[in-house]
């Protein structure tokens, strides 16, 4: 059970389920934990233009 919870919360860091994020934020507020890293994570934007990057990846694939 504990291991599954760890994995699920790790997966949550990836998926960013809104309902879970709200509960996490509430806990952090009560525990006065800085949420800055997570807020930053949620607002993080892709580096560069995604449409340009996908073309680069496709080119790399062809070269392999």
């Amino acid at each position: 059970m504990e291991n599954k919870l760890r994995q699920l919360f790790d997966y949550q860091r990836f998926e960013q389920n809104d309902n879970l994020n709200k509960l996490i934020d509430d806990t952090h507020r009560r525990a006065r934990i800085s949420a800055i890293p997570d807020v930053f994570m949620r607002n993080i934007s892709a580096a560069g233009d995604p449409s340009t990057s996908i073309e680069i990846i496709k080119k790399q694939l062809k070269q392999l």
């Binding site: 860091r13 990836f14 994570m41 949620r42 993080i44 892709a46 580096a47 995604p50």
Partner: peptide, 10 residues
């Protein structure tokens, strides 16, 4: 893309 990048950057 953003989810992967964000997780890896973290």
């Amino acid at each position: 893309h953003d989810k992967v990048f964000g997780y890896i950057f973290n």
